[in-house]
Design a binder for these strands. Sequence first.
DNA 1: GGCGTATTTGACACCATGTCAAAAACATGC
DNA 2: GCATGTTTTTGACATGGTGTCAAATACGCC
Lengths: 199, 199
Amino acid sequence: MRPREFDHDDVLRIAFDQFWRKGVRGTSLSDIARDAGVQRGSLYNAFGSKEALFLLAYERYAGDYLVALQKALGAGSLRKRLTTFFDLTITNFRSGSPPRGCPTTRGLMELGAAEGEGLDEDARRAFANLVSRITALVEEALSAGAERGEFSGNPAAAALHIITVTRGLAVLERAFGDEPQLRKIAAHAIDLVLGKGVR
Amino acid sequence: MRPREFDHDDVLRIAFDQFWRKGVRGTSLSDIARDAGVQRGSLYNAFGSKEALFLLAYERYAGDYLVALQKALGAGSLRKRLTTFFDLTITNFRSGSPPRGCPTTRGLMELGAAEGEGLDEDARRAFANLVSRITALVEEALSAGAERGEFSGNPAAAALHIITVTRGLAVLERAFGDEPQLRKIAAHAIDLVLGKGVR
DNA sequence: GGCGTATTTGACACCATGTCAAAAACATGC
DNA sequence: GCATGTTTTTGACATGGTGTCAAATACGCC
């Protein structure tokens, strides 16, 4: 058989960069093909469709991101962990120039109907899956903190609250692009969940 | 001059319904034209572009929505006001079948770059404007509540926190579509901001 | 009733996704 | 070393989107 003339992973990396900057619907396969130095048809041959290509590229991003968060949430006092967690989250939203925002939140809001059909539904599942996994990590940290007396409350409810705040931050980032404001909101959220007293 | 053959407001209403259900990029002017019984060209003549049409339709929605929220935030105890506020917010996200989500949040995340050019920037301003106005309403309610001893804390910071949660709820709605969960998160947020004691 | 002006209409240019058949390039067996 | 077979590449095509334009049209107004 004839060997492929391009590197599978290179294309995924290049494609996700574009998807991140311009959104799925705002990125054309021609853009990606040009950037990757590949014929558009080859992309269809290799990946099937734009959505399938996006899904692969996104899974790669989600995996890397989850590992980074896991590290952030695994060391230090609970307050320290949450601070690092929010810091990483906001830094991720504000990375790139101009800042690229949160690809997961963007993807979720770009979906068609909530009960969509076909590949849209696969994408929704992928986005929701990352959100769920992050929630689980946060809840774990809170539970551990509770055992050490750093937190009193319902870990599951608090984790859900924190996740909701991170999704809200992703939205406010697009609305105002005011990074100091985002960080203030994050600090306030930590204070609310942990109690305002310094520990 | 020749009179217009369609009603300006009818088209805005029909258009926004589609934009809400399918997003700006997911809705074609052909769709709107068909639904409204108007030639596509007439829409371009009357509104200039899809984005301009969307902007007009959105302003109409935003105005109505703001009035409704104002009413929700203007009566009863602070806890009651916030409860009604979240209730209205979630009900709005979950309206329609299938539920249509939050048009403002969706619009914000659909934007190109944060420092976009042209009409994208106009749209961003419109979305951000609604968010700002809602924040102001919430802050007002909190300040009033503070004077009556129903709340102790920084009204501005708390309002920003609450707004962040509502934006996060809009995102989780798309991810999971779990309305009871959304309502639990909202109740938890109110407890956090107001203090968990029943009042 | 005719004129002017704004709206309507259909053709067009351009770019997007996705499909397909023909051409090309290597791996393999002989 | 060379023919064969399979996969990738390539370019043409169908379809549908946005946006522009000139010609046709229909009404208000004089």
